[in-house]
């Protein structure tokens, strides 16, 4: 785990097009991805944000090798992606735990599948502890909460030490505290191993907090609107001016994307509470795009917003969590 060299490999997605037959008419095809090109360097952490239905999950499935594109190429290093492999771990949007296996057996499924359970058995306990579920090792998935299930799914993907880790909203069902703790855990793992990571999220703060670059996608048809680099040292402060400036920029891009498709409701609910952040008393400028409607939304969710702000303004949010009785990382 202490390897300083990158365990990851570079990833290239070149002009990928993916169509699906439309559900009601087989002759009509919906264009889920219209020529997407991304490249991720070895050991880089890249986030994908974008409204619902813009093809984020579709892209991850293609990279995982579960589906094949209609045209375009996908490469891991200099090897083309043709089939799924344990080198590319995918944490699905739904946890999809095997209901007939206990938590422990779900986590060790990858070891069993690769036939390396004997040598790597000790890691199962490490990962159980990492996701804070050692007490539930022998529980069946049915008895877990949504957030616990997601943590098991994360551990299940991590145990294979994939070279590329694809995360489809892995922290979506977690509460704010656990979520921040898991963000730091994922970052810690990433920093220790330098796995290449592609993280789909609806939480713009999460994207800025974690990633080296943020890919912004827009729907109908799904394509990449812009890629933004985040050039801040980690751990990042969620209330730093640079952080807030980036958030404003991303929101503006998504906002226009929403307008372009005449369907602003597709911008996920996780986005709108953070819409504008002009909290008075802060010595920074409110973002330019804050239109009246969004400011109104913002005041409604003001309490949540400022709590999060307060938490994130601490340099190390985990130390705060430790005092609040949550299990330390």
């Amino acid at each position: 785990m202490s390897a300083s060299a990158s365990e990851g490999s570079s990833l290239r997605v070149l002009g990928v097009v993916k169509e699906f037959p439309s559900p009601d008419n087989a002759n009509v095809r919906t264009l889920a991805l219209a020529g997407v090109t991304v490249s991720v360097a070895a050991g880089e952490l890249v986030s994908i944000v974008g409204p619902s239905g813009c093809g984020k999950s579709t892209l991850l499935r293609l990279i995982a090798g579960l589906d094949s594109p209609n045209s375009g190429e996908l490469w891991i290093g200099d090897v083309p992606i043709i089939a799924p492999s344990a080198e590319r771990g995918l944490v699905f949007q739904d946890p999809n735990l095997f209901p007939w296996l206990t938590v422990r057996r779900n986590i060790q499924a990858g070891l069993v599948a690769r036939g390396v359970l004997q040598e790597k058995r000790h890691e199962v306990d490490e990962f159980l502890r990492l996701v804070g579920l050692d007490a539930f090792a022998n529980a069946f998935p049915h008895h877990l909460s949504g957030g616990m299930s997601q943590r098991v799914a994360l551990a299940r993907a991590l145990i294979n030490h994939p070279k590329v880790l694809l995360l489809d909203e892995p922290l979506g069902a977690l509460d704010a505290f656990t979520r921040m703790r898991m963000q730091d855990e994922v970052l810690r793992l990433w920093q220790a191993r330098r796995t290449t990571m592609l993280l789909v999220t609806h939480d713009i703060d999460e994207a800025i907090y974690m990633s080296d670059r943020i890919v912004i996608m827009t729907p109908s048809p799904g394509r990449i609107e812009r890629t933004i680099s985040v050039a801040q040292d980690r751990p990042r402060q969620r209330s730093s001016p640079e952080f807030l400036r980036l958030r404003g920029e991303i929101l503006e891009l998504l906002h226009f994307a929403g307008n372009a498709t005449r369907d602003r409701s597709t911008v996920s609910p996780g986005v709108s509470p953070d819409a504008a952040d002009g909290s008075p008393g802060d010595d920074r400028k409110p973002p330019e795009q804050a239109d009246p409607a969004m400011v109104k939304q913002n005041t409604q969710s003001g309490a949540v917003h400022s709590l999060r702000e307060a938490l994130s303004s601490r340099k190390n949010s985990t130390s705060l969590l430790r005092h609040s009785g949550l299990p330390p990382g």
Partner: peptide, 23 residues
């Protein structure tokens, strides 16, 4: 989706049949 998960974990066909489809 169970089969997809198993595939991304590195499962080959015997695992898919014996440890996913049959259970």
């Amino acid at each position: 989706s169970y089969l997809d998960v198993a595939r991304t974990l590195g499962a080959r066909e015997p695992y898919l049949v014996l440890r996913v489809a049959i259970p």
